[in-house]
Design a binder for these strands. Sequence first.
DNA 1: CGCACTTTTGAACAGAATCAAGTTTTGTGG
DNA 2: CCACAAAACTTGATTCTGTTCAAAAGTGCG
Lengths: 248, 248
Amino acid sequence: MLSPIPVHDISLPHLRHACSNCSLRELCLPAGLTAEDMHAVEKLVTQGRPVKRGEALYRAGEPFKALYAVRLGFLKTSVISPDGREQVTGFHMSGDLMGMDAISADLHACDAIALEDSEVCELPFTEMETLSRQIPALQHHFYKVMSREIVRDHGVMLLLGNMKAEERVAAFLLSLSTRFQLRGYSSTGFNLRMTREEIGSYLGLKLETVSRTLSKFQEQGLIKVHNRLIELLDLAALRQIISNEQGG
Amino acid sequence: MLSPIPVHDISLPHLRHACSNCSLRELCLPAGLTAEDMHAVEKLVTQGRPVKRGEALYRAGEPFKALYAVRLGFLKTSVISPDGREQVTGFHMSGDLMGMDAISADLHACDAIALEDSEVCELPFTEMETLSRQIPALQHHFYKVMSREIVRDHGVMLLLGNMKAEERVAAFLLSLSTRFQLRGYSSTGFNLRMTREEIGSYLGLKLETVSRTLSKFQEQGLIKVHNRLIELLDLAALRQIISNEQGG
DNA sequence: CGCACTTTTGAACAGAATCAAGTTTTGTGG
DNA sequence: CCACAAAACTTGATTCTGTTCAAAAGTGCG
């Protein structure tokens, strides 16, 4: 199994580095773990596992063994209904924890596909569970991360249930902007890693509507679009659009 | 604090009874707890707390102290966007566990309103967390219940993102049917506890559309509607509608 | 028993989907 | 490095689903 980061490199300083910079952000940083706790956690974390663009990290129906912390790259998750409709349920970037929906039935409930060459850390769940009994902060943190996922999903439900096409696209761009910023990247210029169709699936719109809406925003001078390169020119106006289309 | 069930009644046999019949179904039943474990859990569970129709069990922004297991009754949860749009995120009946979205920020993230006179058990979260470190099955079960909530939310996202009005309403009726059946009630005849507007909010539709769709189903002989009394006459046809509208 | 809330139904309208071309980009192999 | 095929994107015209606006009828709670 090839990996850009050999096992022996996953020492405490290394993991710390990984945590604070890209990888285990969601898992480790806010947990407030001591050096000793960290050491225990790191022993469970496998070496980085690469996932090439287009490949699946896991697929719905596969047995659940581990959660995954995105170390770098970009992935989507999606559920597919029995009659073949796909709903993208999320986009995931460095520091995000994936696979929590699989705990419920011990089977993965969605597909996770890399949208660009990515790398994840595997967190064997049973072992993490055992460890979290010894480290209250870790246990609490897992509850928190799962809770945050629920809150996020409720936000998407609000978007899907209440918002118009323009509001959805604006909310999507602003959400990406915030997430990139949190990771130290530009909040106003970034590269969409997904197709218009995948954006549309996430937002409950057809790809043509996504395309048209982006074009319209560009005409209005709110953004600049060159393929998947996006530049946000007027964050305030985008926020205004979400706040019920007043003004602008 | 008035309660139909005094504290001293919450003895082991009582809690067992509550679990298997109505209340802590989601919390206790699948956890496979021993009698001893059960006893420990029951010491944490407060007496039943009544919530009258129209009252809030909790409101967004309130500090988070406990999860709630619905003992009996019917509640809705909803998030409200800054500009005032309401999205009903779920309907909750006996045995359901509520409040998990509050763990994330130690604040409730949604409103929980009783749609009929209800009663809940309060589960102080910090204490439950501590206890779950001593009872692995309990810890695992909490993870499972939260995971199930995530899976459920993804299902709603699929519905909101991909389905037409008729499909949504059919899916909603069938979902209620299943849930009532699991609790030992009729799966074909039940009382909607919520308004058309609340159904619409949950399904991403306007109340008029919900009403029209129910009327149409009635004309087609799939259901019988008398106000909030619903009778499902052709489950197969309703399922067919969800399976992409073929046949019928 | 009456008033407010809920529900139904109709008619006109709007927003997004669908259908359809044409263009651009990307990835691959020669 | 270029040529080519496949995939992705844009834009327009049309259609259709669901919303909006409106009014009337029904229900139930105090």
